[in-house]
Amino acid sequence: MRAEAPAARLRLLDGPTVAALLEPAAVRAAVAEAFALHSRGEGRTFPVVREQLAEGVFGIKSGAVPAQALLGYKSAGFWPANRGRGGEPHQATIVLHDPATGRPLCVLDGNAITSARTAAAGAIGLQRLARPGSRALCLFGTGVQARAHLAEALRVLPALEQVRYCTHRGQPDAAFESAFAGRCALQFAPDADTAVAASDVVITATPGAGVLFGLGAVRPGTHINAVGADTRGKRELPEGLLARARLVVDDRSQARQLGEAQWAPELPCTEIGALDDAARAPETITVFDLTGLALQDLAVARMVLASAEAQGLGLDIAWPW
């Protein structure tokens, strides 16, 4: 006789609920743990699905941490036509599973988690690789990711004063400037090379449609967080830059397939989870190539789920076997 299945529940967490539970320091801690688990081989990341569709890009990132009973995936992509519909082009959903049974435990809106965990990863890169006392930053992009990365940079770089930003249209973005009014000295930069040359830190957070600045603009000692290249064929950095830099990645194999490292896969690189605390040579150019790990999404989603359960948030529904 078949045993009677135990009662099962499924928690649903929508975007506003998730966003309210994403405390920046806690997100950074979860992402740092994910990087360490990954580099120690204690977390598994499964092959990435990344497919070009007629309407956009669709992908799946999945993984597990057996010792922590963590299993799940994020389906995500980019649908540019959503802007014309009044919606967000980036769409992401995260599902956490019980590894013992395969049953789903929670379905979460993944948009806010994606932005927060990517920006947290960038903040970790800034803390570990940017020169202490960095005062000037050049930001490419003014969208959701760019805003999240700038907000984190302002949190973790206490000496940061001047922010120059570049847009793909070559025009100022009034809404972006309003969002950061009073938080830093923010200035539109009409010439990308001039802005890069005047900066200690560069963050590229664009759709990765092409090279954003010239190789000669990068001064010794500059640190670059490269965010936009996350698919084959995408790039933001100029030819020859990686060969001049110390290259740090979130995942070696994935970066060489999808990130900036795809353009120079033969170059040596270090995973950020394995980065030692050795002093940074002041004249060294450093690049952190962020492609995004499933373990980042899952670690942050687990944190959000625990907070939601503790506070009684979300929609808890029966999910029969």
Rank of each mutant, 00 (worst) to 15 (best):
residue 1 M to H: 15
residue 1 M to A: 07
residue 1 M to I: 12
residue 2 R to V: 01
residue 13 L to G: 11
residue 13 L to D: 08
residue 13 L to H: 12
residue 14 D to T: 09
residue 20 A to E: 12
residue 20 A to F: 08
residue 21 L to I: 04
residue 22 L to N: 06
residue 23 E to H: 13
residue 26 A to V: 03
residue 27 V to G: 01
residue 31 V to Q: 01
residue 37 L to N: 04
residue 45 T to Y: 14
residue 46 F to S: 14
residue 48 V to Y: 07
residue 49 V to Q: 10
residue 51 E to S: 14
residue 55 E to A: 12
residue 61 K to I: 13
residue 62 S to V: 10
residue 63 G to M: 01
residue 64 A to G: 02
residue 64 A to T: 12
residue 65 V to Y: 06
residue 69 A to E: 15
residue 69 A to N: 13
residue 70 L to R: 11
residue 74 K to M: 08
residue 75 S to Y: 14
residue 77 G to Q: 12
residue 77 G to W: 05
residue 79 W to G: 13
residue 79 W to E: 10
residue 80 P to D: 02
residue 83 R to Y: 10
residue 83 R to P: 01
residue 84 G to C: 01
residue 89 P to V: 04
residue 99 P to G: 09
residue 99 P to K: 02
residue 100 A to V: 10
residue 100 A to S: 05
residue 101 T to F: 01
residue 103 R to W: 13
residue 103 R to A: 15
residue 106 C to V: 15
residue 107 V to Y: 14
residue 110 G to Q: 09
residue 114 T to Q: 01
residue 117 R to D: 03
residue 117 R to W: 08
residue 118 T to Y: 00
residue 121 A to C: 03
residue 124 I to H: 09
residue 128 R to T: 03
residue 132 P to G: 04
residue 133 G to E: 11
residue 134 S to P: 04
residue 135 R to S: 11
residue 138 C to Y: 04
residue 143 G to W: 01
residue 148 A to E: 01
residue 159 A to D: 06
residue 161 E to T: 10
residue 166 C to D: 04
residue 170 G to Q: 05
residue 173 D to Y: 02
residue 175 A to K: 03
residue 176 F to R: 02
residue 185 A to D: 06
residue 185 A to G: 08
residue 187 Q to P: 11
residue 188 F to N: 00
residue 189 A to C: 09
residue 192 A to V: 02
residue 193 D to V: 05
residue 197 A to Y: 07
residue 198 A to D: 12
residue 201 V to T: 11
residue 201 V to S: 02
residue 202 V to Q: 08
residue 209 A to V: 12
residue 215 L to N: 09
residue 217 A to E: 08
residue 218 V to T: 00
residue 219 R to S: 15
residue 221 G to Q: 14
residue 221 G to I: 10
residue 226 A to W: 00
residue 227 V to N: 03
residue 227 V to A: 00
residue 237 L to T: 05
residue 237 L to G: 00
residue 238 P to K: 08
residue 243 A to Q: 07
residue 243 A to K: 14
residue 244 R to T: 05
residue 244 R to K: 07
residue 246 R to T: 15
residue 248 V to E: 04
residue 252 R to H: 13
residue 258 L to A: 07
residue 258 L to C: 15
residue 258 L to I: 11
residue 261 A to H: 10
residue 264 A to Y: 09
residue 266 E to T: 07
residue 268 P to I: 04
residue 272 I to P: 11
residue 272 I to Y: 03
residue 274 A to W: 13
residue 275 L to V: 12
residue 276 D to G: 08
residue 279 A to F: 06
residue 282 P to C: 07
residue 283 E to H: 06
residue 283 E to A: 06
residue 284 T to Q: 05
residue 285 I to K: 06
residue 299 A to F: 03
residue 299 A to Y: 06
residue 307 S to F: 15
residue 308 A to I: 10
residue 309 E to T: 09
residue 310 A to P: 03
residue 313 L to W: 11
residue 313 L to M: 14
residue 315 L to A: 09
residue 319 W to A: 14
residue 319 W to P: 04
residue 321 W to K: 15
